[in-house]
Computed example of a mutant assay.
Amino acid sequence: MSERPPTPNGVSRHEHNSEPHPDPSPDKQGGAEREALLQRYPRIRLTPAIEAPSETNSEWVYAAVESIELERSARDLLTRQPELGATAVHISAAEDFGDFIPEPEDPLDMIATVARGIRQHGDAYAFWGTTP
Rank of each mutant, 00 (worst) to 15 (best):
N17V: 01
R75P: 01
I50W: 03
R40N: 07
R13W: 01
E66P: 02
H21Q: 12
R13H: 01
Y41N: 07
E59Q: 13
N57L: 06
S12N: 03
A52M: 12
L38R: 12
G31E: 02
S67F: 05
R43C: 01
R45V: 05
E19N: 15
D23P: 13
S67H: 02
R72G: 05
A74L: 01
R13I: 07
N17L: 02
R13A: 10
I50C: 00
E51N: 06
Q29T: 10
H14N: 00
S18K: 10
S73D: 15
E19D: 15
S12F: 08
A63F: 09
G10R: 07
E35W: 10
L37G: 01
L46G: 02
E71S: 09
P24Y: 05
P24I: 03
P26Q: 10
Q39P: 01
Y62S: 12
E33F: 09
P26T: 07
L38T: 08
N57P: 01
H21N: 12
E51Q: 04
S25K: 14
Y62G: 13
S12V: 09
G30D: 04
G30Q: 08
P53A: 08
S67C: 02
S18E: 11
E71Y: 00
H21A: 09
P42W: 00
E59I: 12
S58P: 02
L38E: 12
Y41W: 15
Q39G: 10
P20S: 12
G30V: 09
V65A: 05
D27G: 15
I44V: 14
Q39A: 15
Y62H: 13
P20G: 09
P53W: 04
Y41R: 10
T47Y: 04
Y41P: 00
W60P: 02
N57A: 07
S58F: 00
E66V: 10
P22R: 13
R45M: 15
P53K: 04
I50L: 12
P20C: 06
R72N: 11
G30M: 07
D27C: 14
E59K: 15
E15S: 11
P42F: 00
N17K: 03
R34N: 11
E59A: 14
R13L: 08
L38G: 10
Y62I: 14
V61N: 01
T47M: 11
R72F: 02
P42Y: 00
E35C: 04
I50A: 03
I44E: 06
A36V: 02
A63Q: 02
W60T: 00
D23T: 15
G10P: 04
P26G: 14
N17Y: 08
E55K: 08
E66Y: 07
H21Y: 10
